[in-house]
Design a protein around this nucleic acid. Structure first.
Length: 502
DNA sequence: CTAAACCTAC
Protein backbone atom coordinates (compact mmCIF):
# COMPACT_ATOMS: atom_id res chain seq x y z
CA UNK A 1 0.00 0.00 0.00
CA UNK A 2 1.51 3.36 -1.02
CA UNK A 3 2.38 5.85 1.66
CA UNK A 4 -0.11 8.62 1.96
CA UNK A 5 -0.59 11.81 3.88
CA UNK A 6 -3.10 14.54 3.56
CA UNK A 7 -1.25 17.79 3.38
CA UNK A 8 -2.92 21.04 2.64
CA UNK A 9 -1.23 24.30 3.24
CA UNK A 10 -1.65 27.79 1.99
CA UNK A 11 0.80 30.61 2.34
CA UNK A 12 0.82 34.05 0.82
CA UNK A 13 3.64 32.92 -1.41
CA UNK A 14 3.17 29.20 -1.66
CA UNK A 15 0.22 26.93 -1.53
CA UNK A 16 0.15 23.20 -1.93
CA UNK A 17 -2.25 20.37 -1.60
CA UNK A 18 -0.72 16.91 -1.82
CA UNK A 19 -1.45 13.36 -0.75
CA UNK A 20 1.31 11.23 -2.24
CA UNK A 21 5.05 11.07 -1.70
CA UNK A 22 5.82 12.03 -5.26
CA UNK A 23 3.62 15.11 -5.03
CA UNK A 24 5.49 16.03 -1.91
CA UNK A 25 8.78 15.69 -3.71
CA UNK A 26 7.48 18.01 -6.40
CA UNK A 27 6.43 20.53 -3.78
CA UNK A 28 9.92 20.50 -2.29
CA UNK A 29 11.40 20.99 -5.78
CA UNK A 30 9.24 24.08 -6.26
CA UNK A 31 9.85 25.55 -2.84
CA UNK A 32 13.62 25.00 -2.80
CA UNK A 33 14.64 27.75 -5.24
CA UNK A 34 12.14 30.15 -3.67
CA UNK A 35 13.55 29.62 -0.19
CA UNK A 36 17.12 29.86 -1.45
CA UNK A 37 16.41 33.29 -2.85
CA UNK A 38 14.28 34.67 -0.07
CA UNK A 39 13.90 33.92 3.64
CA UNK A 40 10.23 34.91 3.51
CA UNK A 41 9.50 31.34 2.40
CA UNK A 42 10.85 29.94 5.65
CA UNK A 43 7.42 29.46 7.21
CA UNK A 44 6.20 27.56 4.15
CA UNK A 45 9.21 25.27 4.43
CA UNK A 46 8.53 24.69 8.13
CA UNK A 47 4.91 23.86 7.39
CA UNK A 48 5.92 21.23 4.84
CA UNK A 49 8.43 19.85 7.34
CA UNK A 50 5.69 19.51 9.96
CA UNK A 51 3.46 17.75 7.45
CA UNK A 52 6.18 15.26 6.55
CA UNK A 53 6.68 14.45 10.23
CA UNK A 54 3.13 13.11 10.28
CA UNK A 55 3.71 11.00 7.19
CA UNK A 56 3.03 7.29 7.84
CA UNK A 57 4.95 5.12 7.61
CA UNK A 58 7.93 7.44 8.16
CA UNK A 59 10.13 7.74 5.09
CA UNK A 60 13.84 8.42 5.46
CA UNK A 61 14.02 9.55 1.85
CA UNK A 62 11.32 12.16 2.38
CA UNK A 63 12.88 13.29 5.65
CA UNK A 64 16.18 13.77 3.86
CA UNK A 65 14.53 15.91 1.23
CA UNK A 66 13.08 18.07 3.97
CA UNK A 67 16.51 18.29 5.60
CA UNK A 68 17.83 19.46 2.25
CA UNK A 69 15.07 22.02 1.94
CA UNK A 70 15.56 23.44 5.44
CA UNK A 71 19.35 23.50 4.98
CA UNK A 72 19.15 25.65 1.90
CA UNK A 73 18.71 28.94 3.76
CA UNK A 74 20.54 30.19 6.88
CA UNK A 75 17.18 31.15 8.41
CA UNK A 76 15.95 27.55 8.44
CA UNK A 77 19.29 25.81 8.95
CA UNK A 78 18.70 25.55 12.74
CA UNK A 79 15.37 23.87 11.98
CA UNK A 80 17.24 21.30 9.93
CA UNK A 81 19.66 20.66 12.79
CA UNK A 82 16.78 20.18 15.22
CA UNK A 83 14.93 17.93 12.76
CA UNK A 84 17.93 15.65 12.32
CA UNK A 85 18.15 15.16 16.08
CA UNK A 86 14.47 14.22 16.32
CA UNK A 87 14.17 11.89 13.33
CA UNK A 88 13.26 8.29 14.19
CA UNK A 89 15.37 6.93 11.38
CA UNK A 90 18.33 8.44 9.57
CA UNK A 91 20.95 7.31 7.12
CA UNK A 92 24.35 8.55 6.01
CA UNK A 93 22.69 10.96 3.56
CA UNK A 94 20.79 12.71 6.33
CA UNK A 95 24.04 13.57 8.04
CA UNK A 96 25.82 14.44 4.79
CA UNK A 97 23.20 16.98 3.93
CA UNK A 98 23.73 18.83 7.17
CA UNK A 99 27.49 18.54 7.26
CA UNK A 100 27.55 20.07 3.78
CA UNK A 101 25.10 22.84 4.65
CA UNK A 102 26.79 23.75 7.92
CA UNK A 103 30.13 23.68 6.15
CA UNK A 104 28.88 26.31 3.72
CA UNK A 105 27.38 28.62 6.32
CA UNK A 106 29.55 31.38 7.67
CA UNK A 107 29.67 30.21 11.30
CA UNK A 108 28.86 26.57 10.89
CA UNK A 109 32.30 25.00 10.66
CA UNK A 110 32.49 23.81 14.26
CA UNK A 111 29.00 22.31 14.12
CA UNK A 112 29.78 20.66 10.79
CA UNK A 113 32.89 19.13 12.28
CA UNK A 114 31.08 18.01 15.44
CA UNK A 115 28.33 16.40 13.40
CA UNK A 116 30.86 14.72 11.14
CA UNK A 117 32.67 13.28 14.16
CA UNK A 118 29.37 11.93 15.53
CA UNK A 119 28.30 10.23 12.32
CA UNK A 120 27.69 6.52 12.75
CA UNK A 121 29.01 5.84 9.24
CA UNK A 122 30.82 7.98 6.67
CA UNK A 123 31.03 7.77 2.91
CA UNK A 124 32.97 9.83 0.37
CA UNK A 125 30.28 12.53 0.40
CA UNK A 126 30.84 13.01 4.11
CA UNK A 127 34.61 13.29 3.76
CA UNK A 128 34.40 15.58 0.78
CA UNK A 129 31.94 17.86 2.55
CA UNK A 130 34.01 18.17 5.70
CA UNK A 131 37.30 18.66 3.82
CA UNK A 132 35.95 21.45 1.64
CA UNK A 133 34.22 23.02 4.66
CA UNK A 134 37.61 23.48 6.30
CA UNK A 135 39.19 24.73 3.10
CA UNK A 136 36.36 27.23 2.66
CA UNK A 137 36.81 28.52 6.20
CA UNK A 138 40.49 29.24 5.72
CA UNK A 139 41.73 26.09 7.43
CA UNK A 140 43.47 24.27 4.59
CA UNK A 141 45.89 22.49 6.92
CA UNK A 142 43.01 21.03 8.88
CA UNK A 143 41.40 20.07 5.58
CA UNK A 144 44.53 18.19 4.54
CA UNK A 145 44.83 16.55 7.95
CA UNK A 146 41.30 15.21 7.56
CA UNK A 147 42.12 14.00 4.07
CA UNK A 148 45.12 12.10 5.45
CA UNK A 149 43.00 10.70 8.28
CA UNK A 150 40.56 9.46 5.66
CA UNK A 151 43.34 7.66 3.77
CA UNK A 152 44.40 5.90 6.98
CA UNK A 153 40.97 5.04 8.24
CA UNK A 154 39.94 1.40 7.74
CA UNK A 155 37.01 0.94 5.42
CA UNK A 156 37.30 4.31 3.75
CA UNK A 157 39.22 3.09 0.69
CA UNK A 158 36.37 3.94 -1.68
CA UNK A 159 36.18 7.43 -0.26
CA UNK A 160 39.39 8.50 -1.96
CA UNK A 161 37.82 9.55 -5.22
CA UNK A 162 37.94 12.57 -7.52
CA UNK A 163 35.86 14.71 -5.19
CA UNK A 164 37.83 14.19 -2.00
CA UNK A 165 41.15 14.42 -3.86
CA UNK A 166 39.99 17.59 -5.58
CA UNK A 167 38.86 19.11 -2.28
CA UNK A 168 42.24 18.32 -0.74
CA UNK A 169 44.15 19.70 -3.71
CA UNK A 170 42.13 22.89 -3.66
CA UNK A 171 42.91 23.25 0.04
CA UNK A 172 46.63 22.76 -0.58
CA UNK A 173 46.90 25.26 -3.38
CA UNK A 174 44.54 27.81 -1.84
CA UNK A 175 46.97 28.28 1.03
CA UNK A 176 50.08 27.74 -1.11
CA UNK A 177 50.95 24.82 1.05
CA UNK A 178 54.22 23.27 0.11
CA UNK A 179 54.56 21.11 -2.88
CA UNK A 180 55.30 18.04 -0.82
CA UNK A 181 51.83 18.10 0.61
CA UNK A 182 50.26 19.05 -2.65
CA UNK A 183 51.91 16.07 -4.29
CA UNK A 184 50.62 13.91 -1.55
CA UNK A 185 47.09 14.93 -2.33
CA UNK A 186 47.78 14.70 -6.02
CA UNK A 187 49.19 11.19 -5.69
CA UNK A 188 45.71 9.94 -6.21
CA UNK A 189 45.75 11.00 -9.83
CA UNK A 190 49.06 9.29 -10.54
CA UNK A 191 48.53 6.06 -8.68
CA UNK A 192 44.95 5.17 -9.13
CA UNK A 193 43.64 7.32 -11.85
CA UNK A 194 43.98 5.88 -15.30
CA UNK A 195 41.97 7.75 -17.87
CA UNK A 196 39.24 8.79 -15.47
CA UNK A 197 40.72 12.08 -14.48
CA UNK A 198 39.48 14.45 -11.87
CA UNK A 199 38.92 18.11 -11.72
CA UNK A 200 41.79 20.17 -10.49
CA UNK A 201 41.33 23.41 -8.70
CA UNK A 202 41.74 26.55 -10.75
CA UNK A 203 45.28 27.34 -9.58
CA UNK A 204 46.62 24.23 -11.20
CA UNK A 205 44.30 24.41 -14.20
CA UNK A 206 45.71 21.52 -16.16
CA UNK A 207 44.02 20.98 -19.46
CA UNK A 208 45.45 17.51 -19.83
CA UNK A 209 43.71 16.32 -16.70
CA UNK A 210 40.46 17.75 -17.98
CA UNK A 211 41.01 16.05 -21.31
CA UNK A 212 41.47 12.76 -19.49
CA UNK A 213 37.95 12.96 -18.11
CA UNK A 214 35.56 10.62 -19.87
CA UNK A 215 32.54 12.79 -19.28
CA UNK A 216 33.33 16.30 -18.09
CA UNK A 217 30.18 17.85 -16.66
CA UNK A 218 29.10 21.48 -16.61
CA UNK A 219 31.02 22.15 -13.42
CA UNK A 220 34.24 20.81 -14.97
CA UNK A 221 33.75 22.93 -18.08
CA UNK A 222 33.07 25.99 -15.97
CA UNK A 223 36.16 25.32 -13.86
CA UNK A 224 38.28 25.21 -17.02
CA UNK A 225 36.79 28.45 -18.36
CA UNK A 226 37.27 30.27 -15.05
CA UNK A 227 40.74 28.81 -14.68
CA UNK A 228 41.87 30.13 -18.04
CA UNK A 229 40.17 33.49 -17.48
CA UNK A 230 41.97 33.94 -14.17
CA UNK A 231 45.32 32.77 -15.44
CA UNK A 232 45.49 35.33 -18.21
CA UNK A 233 44.44 33.14 -21.11
CA UNK A 234 41.09 34.61 -22.16
CA UNK A 235 41.30 33.15 -25.68
CA UNK A 236 41.55 29.66 -24.25
CA UNK A 237 38.65 30.43 -21.91
CA UNK A 238 36.45 31.50 -24.81
CA UNK A 239 37.57 28.48 -26.80
CA UNK A 240 36.40 26.22 -23.99
CA UNK A 241 33.11 28.12 -23.86
CA UNK A 242 32.59 27.41 -27.58
CA UNK A 243 33.41 23.75 -27.04
CA UNK A 244 31.02 23.62 -24.10
CA UNK A 245 28.22 24.96 -26.27
CA UNK A 246 29.04 22.49 -29.03
CA UNK A 247 28.94 19.64 -26.50
CA UNK A 248 25.30 20.44 -25.92
CA UNK A 249 25.59 21.74 -22.37
CA UNK A 250 23.48 24.63 -21.19
CA UNK A 251 25.77 27.06 -19.38
CA UNK A 252 24.53 28.23 -15.99
CA UNK A 253 24.95 31.56 -14.22
CA UNK A 254 28.37 30.57 -12.85
CA UNK A 255 29.64 29.66 -16.32
CA UNK A 256 28.81 33.15 -17.49
CA UNK A 257 30.81 34.72 -14.68
CA UNK A 258 33.86 32.94 -16.04
CA UNK A 259 33.11 33.80 -19.67
CA UNK A 260 32.41 37.47 -18.98
CA UNK A 261 35.54 37.87 -16.87
CA UNK A 262 37.55 36.35 -19.73
CA UNK A 263 36.11 39.02 -22.05
CA UNK A 264 36.92 41.71 -19.49
CA UNK A 265 40.54 40.63 -19.23
CA UNK A 266 40.89 40.40 -22.99
CA UNK A 267 39.26 43.80 -23.54
CA UNK A 268 36.62 42.21 -25.78
CA UNK A 269 33.91 44.80 -25.23
CA UNK A 270 31.48 43.91 -28.02
CA UNK A 271 31.86 40.19 -27.53
CA UNK A 272 31.34 40.56 -23.77
CA UNK A 273 28.28 42.75 -24.15
CA UNK A 274 26.85 40.33 -26.72
CA UNK A 275 27.29 37.43 -24.31
CA UNK A 276 25.86 39.48 -21.45
CA UNK A 277 22.66 40.10 -23.38
CA UNK A 278 22.46 36.48 -24.50
CA UNK A 279 22.34 35.37 -20.86
CA UNK A 280 18.78 36.62 -20.61
CA UNK A 281 17.62 36.70 -24.22
CA UNK A 282 19.00 33.37 -25.34
CA UNK A 283 19.41 31.29 -22.20
CA UNK A 284 16.57 32.72 -20.13
CA UNK A 285 18.82 33.20 -17.10
CA UNK A 286 18.23 36.30 -15.00
CA UNK A 287 21.25 38.58 -14.76
CA UNK A 288 22.91 38.33 -11.35
CA UNK A 289 24.85 41.05 -9.56
CA UNK A 290 28.01 39.13 -10.47
CA UNK A 291 27.16 39.34 -14.18
CA UNK A 292 26.73 43.09 -13.88
CA UNK A 293 30.02 43.29 -11.95
CA UNK A 294 31.79 41.55 -14.82
CA UNK A 295 30.33 43.89 -17.42
CA UNK A 296 31.21 46.96 -15.36
CA UNK A 297 34.71 45.50 -15.10
CA UNK A 298 34.74 45.11 -18.89
CA UNK A 299 33.51 48.64 -19.56
CA UNK A 300 35.61 50.48 -17.01
CA UNK A 301 38.80 48.58 -17.85
CA UNK A 302 38.22 49.80 -21.39
CA UNK A 303 37.58 53.37 -20.22
CA UNK A 304 33.93 53.34 -21.32
CA UNK A 305 32.71 55.17 -18.23
CA UNK A 306 29.54 56.72 -19.69
CA UNK A 307 28.19 53.30 -20.55
CA UNK A 308 29.27 51.90 -17.18
CA UNK A 309 27.56 54.72 -15.35
CA UNK A 310 24.37 54.33 -17.34
CA UNK A 311 24.30 50.60 -16.66
CA UNK A 312 24.75 51.07 -12.91
CA UNK A 313 21.93 53.61 -12.88
CA UNK A 314 19.52 51.36 -14.71
CA UNK A 315 20.43 47.83 -13.62
CA UNK A 316 17.74 45.59 -12.15
CA UNK A 317 19.68 44.25 -9.15
CA UNK A 318 21.57 46.02 -6.40
CA UNK A 319 25.23 46.62 -7.30
CA UNK A 320 27.51 44.48 -5.13
CA UNK A 321 31.00 45.13 -3.81
CA UNK A 322 32.62 43.38 -6.77
CA UNK A 323 30.93 45.78 -9.14
CA UNK A 324 32.12 48.83 -7.21
CA UNK A 325 35.61 47.39 -6.84
CA UNK A 326 35.75 46.78 -10.60
CA UNK A 327 34.67 50.33 -11.30
CA UNK A 328 37.25 51.65 -8.86
CA UNK A 329 39.93 49.54 -10.53
CA UNK A 330 39.01 50.93 -13.95
CA UNK A 331 39.11 54.44 -12.54
CA UNK A 332 42.64 53.80 -11.31
CA UNK A 333 43.75 52.74 -14.78
CA UNK A 334 42.11 55.68 -16.50
CA UNK A 335 42.51 58.26 -13.72
CA UNK A 336 38.80 59.00 -13.39
CA UNK A 337 38.52 60.82 -10.07
CA UNK A 338 34.80 61.59 -10.19
CA UNK A 339 33.63 57.98 -10.58
CA UNK A 340 36.37 56.73 -8.26
CA UNK A 341 34.83 58.82 -5.48
CA UNK A 342 31.40 57.39 -6.24
CA UNK A 343 32.70 53.80 -6.20
CA UNK A 344 34.79 54.33 -3.07
CA UNK A 345 31.87 55.84 -1.17
CA UNK A 346 29.71 52.85 -2.05
CA UNK A 347 32.49 50.52 -0.88
CA UNK A 348 32.94 52.44 2.36
CA UNK A 349 29.26 51.70 3.04
CA UNK A 350 29.50 47.99 2.21
CA UNK A 351 32.91 47.16 3.73
CA UNK A 352 34.36 50.14 5.63
CA UNK A 353 37.02 47.90 7.15
CA UNK A 354 38.68 47.04 3.83
CA UNK A 355 41.93 49.01 3.52
CA UNK A 356 42.28 48.39 -0.23
CA UNK A 357 39.58 50.94 -0.99
CA UNK A 358 41.44 53.67 0.86
CA UNK A 359 44.75 52.71 -0.73
CA UNK A 360 43.35 52.69 -4.24
CA UNK A 361 41.53 55.97 -3.80
CA UNK A 362 44.68 57.59 -2.39
CA UNK A 363 46.64 56.24 -5.35
CA UNK A 364 44.14 57.69 -7.78
CA UNK A 365 44.39 61.10 -6.13
CA UNK A 366 48.19 60.81 -6.13
CA UNK A 367 48.22 59.83 -9.78
CA UNK A 368 46.37 62.96 -10.84
CA UNK A 369 48.66 65.26 -8.83
CA UNK A 370 50.43 67.33 -11.40
CA UNK A 371 53.28 69.77 -11.74
CA UNK A 372 53.68 72.31 -14.48
CA UNK A 373 56.27 74.70 -15.78
CA UNK A 374 56.24 77.52 -18.28
CA UNK A 375 58.75 77.38 -21.10
CA UNK A 376 58.57 79.95 -23.83
CA UNK A 377 54.90 80.66 -24.40
CA UNK A 378 53.65 77.26 -23.36
CA UNK A 379 52.74 75.51 -20.11
CA UNK A 380 54.03 71.93 -19.82
CA UNK A 381 52.10 69.64 -17.47
CA UNK A 382 53.49 66.44 -15.93
CA UNK A 383 51.86 63.58 -13.98
CA UNK A 384 53.76 61.01 -11.94
CA UNK A 385 55.70 58.68 -14.22
CA UNK A 386 54.05 59.95 -17.38
CA UNK A 387 55.81 59.69 -20.71
CA UNK A 388 53.40 61.81 -22.67
CA UNK A 389 55.72 64.76 -23.14
CA UNK A 390 57.42 64.85 -26.56
CA UNK A 391 60.80 65.17 -24.86
CA UNK A 392 60.06 62.46 -22.30
CA UNK A 393 63.02 60.36 -23.35
CA UNK A 394 65.42 63.24 -22.81
CA UNK A 395 63.82 64.11 -19.45
CA UNK A 396 64.09 60.55 -18.09
CA UNK A 397 67.67 60.21 -19.34
CA UNK A 398 68.64 63.42 -17.54
CA UNK A 399 67.04 62.29 -14.28
CA UNK A 400 68.82 58.95 -14.52
CA UNK A 401 72.13 60.75 -14.97
CA UNK A 402 71.42 63.03 -12.01
CA UNK A 403 70.47 60.07 -9.80
CA UNK A 404 73.77 58.34 -10.60
CA UNK A 405 75.66 61.43 -9.45
CA UNK A 406 73.49 61.70 -6.33
CA UNK A 407 74.07 58.06 -5.46
CA UNK A 408 77.82 58.64 -5.66
CA UNK A 409 77.33 61.21 -2.96
CA UNK A 410 75.49 58.72 -0.79
CA UNK A 411 71.86 59.68 -1.44
CA UNK A 412 69.24 56.96 -0.80
CA UNK A 413 65.62 57.49 -1.77
CA UNK A 414 63.30 57.86 1.24
CA UNK A 415 60.29 55.86 0.17
CA UNK A 416 58.45 56.57 3.39
CA UNK A 417 56.73 59.41 1.58
CA UNK A 418 55.08 57.13 -0.93
CA UNK A 419 51.48 56.37 -0.10
CA UNK A 420 51.26 53.58 -2.59
CA UNK A 421 50.98 50.16 -1.08
CA UNK A 422 53.46 48.62 -3.50
CA UNK A 423 56.74 46.73 -3.50
CA UNK A 424 59.87 48.60 -2.48
CA UNK A 425 61.41 48.52 -5.92
CA UNK A 426 58.23 49.94 -7.41
CA UNK A 427 58.26 52.67 -4.76
CA UNK A 428 61.75 53.68 -5.83
CA UNK A 429 60.52 53.76 -9.42
CA UNK A 430 57.46 55.86 -8.58
CA UNK A 431 59.17 58.31 -6.31
CA UNK A 432 61.97 58.77 -8.83
CA UNK A 433 59.47 60.17 -11.31
CA UNK A 434 57.13 62.34 -9.25
CA UNK A 435 55.70 65.08 -11.40
CA UNK A 436 57.80 67.88 -9.88
CA UNK A 437 61.02 66.09 -10.83
CA UNK A 438 59.87 65.64 -14.42
CA UNK A 439 59.04 69.34 -14.54
CA UNK A 440 62.38 70.32 -13.00
CA UNK A 441 64.31 68.12 -15.43
CA UNK A 442 62.38 69.58 -18.34
CA UNK A 443 63.16 73.06 -16.99
CA UNK A 444 66.87 72.28 -16.99
CA UNK A 445 66.63 71.18 -20.62
CA UNK A 446 64.28 73.83 -21.95
CA UNK A 447 65.22 77.06 -20.20
CA UNK A 448 68.34 79.18 -20.77
CA UNK A 449 71.38 78.34 -18.69
CA UNK A 450 71.54 80.39 -15.52
CA UNK A 451 67.85 81.33 -15.52
CA UNK A 452 65.82 80.22 -12.47
CA UNK A 453 63.53 77.21 -13.01
CA UNK A 454 60.00 77.85 -11.78
CA UNK A 455 57.78 74.84 -11.17
CA UNK A 456 54.20 74.70 -9.87
CA UNK A 457 52.54 71.75 -8.12
CA UNK A 458 48.92 71.24 -7.01
CA UNK A 459 49.83 69.23 -3.91
CA UNK A 460 52.53 69.61 -1.29
CA UNK A 461 56.00 68.54 -2.35
CA UNK A 462 57.11 65.25 -0.80
CA UNK A 463 60.14 65.04 1.49
CA UNK A 464 62.17 62.95 -0.90
CA UNK A 465 61.53 65.30 -3.82
CA UNK A 466 62.59 68.13 -1.53
CA UNK A 467 65.93 66.41 -0.79
CA UNK A 468 66.44 65.48 -4.42
CA UNK A 469 65.75 68.95 -5.78
CA UNK A 470 68.15 70.43 -3.24
CA UNK A 471 70.87 68.11 -4.59
CA UNK A 472 69.92 68.81 -8.21
CA UNK A 473 70.21 72.56 -7.62
CA UNK A 474 73.77 71.92 -6.51
CA UNK A 475 74.73 69.51 -9.29
CA UNK A 476 73.40 71.64 -12.13
CA UNK A 477 74.13 74.96 -10.40
CA UNK A 478 70.69 76.41 -11.08
CA UNK A 479 68.19 78.12 -8.83
CA UNK A 480 64.99 76.10 -8.69
CA UNK A 481 61.73 77.52 -7.32
CA UNK A 482 58.87 75.15 -6.53
CA UNK A 483 55.51 76.69 -5.69
CA UNK A 484 53.55 73.84 -4.03
CA UNK A 485 50.04 74.03 -2.60
CA UNK A 486 51.47 75.43 0.60
CA UNK A 487 54.34 77.81 -0.06
CA UNK A 488 57.39 78.64 -2.19
CA UNK A 489 60.58 76.61 -1.96
CA UNK A 490 63.74 78.32 -3.25
CA UNK A 491 66.42 75.70 -3.90
CA UNK A 492 69.94 76.95 -4.34
CA UNK A 493 73.32 75.25 -4.16
CA UNK A 494 72.08 72.28 -2.19
CA UNK A 495 69.78 73.97 0.32
CA UNK A 496 66.26 75.36 0.47
CA UNK A 497 64.83 78.64 1.71
CA UNK A 498 62.45 76.73 4.00
CA UNK A 499 65.44 75.26 5.87
CA UNK A 500 63.70 71.90 5.71
CA UNK A 501 60.89 73.18 7.86
CA UNK A 502 57.48 73.57 6.23
C1' DC B 1 18.45 13.28 -0.96
C1' DT B 2 24.16 14.66 -0.26
C1' DA B 3 30.10 16.50 -2.72
C1' DA B 4 33.18 19.78 -6.79
C1' DA B 5 32.96 25.41 -10.53
C1' DC B 6 31.80 32.10 -9.10
C1' DC B 7 34.38 38.29 -11.42
C1' DT B 8 37.56 42.42 -6.76
C1' DA B 9 40.91 47.85 -6.66
C1' DC B 10 46.38 47.39 -2.95
Amino acid sequence: MPSRAAIRMKHPSFSVSVTTASQLHDAVDRLLPLLRADASHASAARAIAAAVASFRPPSTLLSNRILHLLSSHPATLPDAVALLASLPSTDVCSYNTLVAALGCSSRGLASARALFDRMPRRDHFSWSAVISAHARHGQPRAALAIYRRMLREPGSAGADNEFTASSALAAATAARIHLRETREAGAWSNDKEQGRGFMLCRECACAHVFQGMPKPDLVSWTAMISGYAQNGQPDEALHYFDMLLRSGFRPDHVTFVGVLSACAHAGLVDKGLGIFHSIKDEYGIEHTADHYACVIDLLSRSGLFERAEEMIDTMSVKPNKFLWASLLGGCRIHKNVRLAKWAAEALFEIEPENPATYVTLANIYASVASSWIEAGTRVHVFLVGDKLHPQAEEIYALLKKLYLKMREEGYVADTGFVLHDVEDEQKQQDIGYHSERLAVAFGIIATPKGAPIKVFKNLRICGDCHTTIKLISKIVQREIIVRDSNRFHHFKNGSCSCRDFW
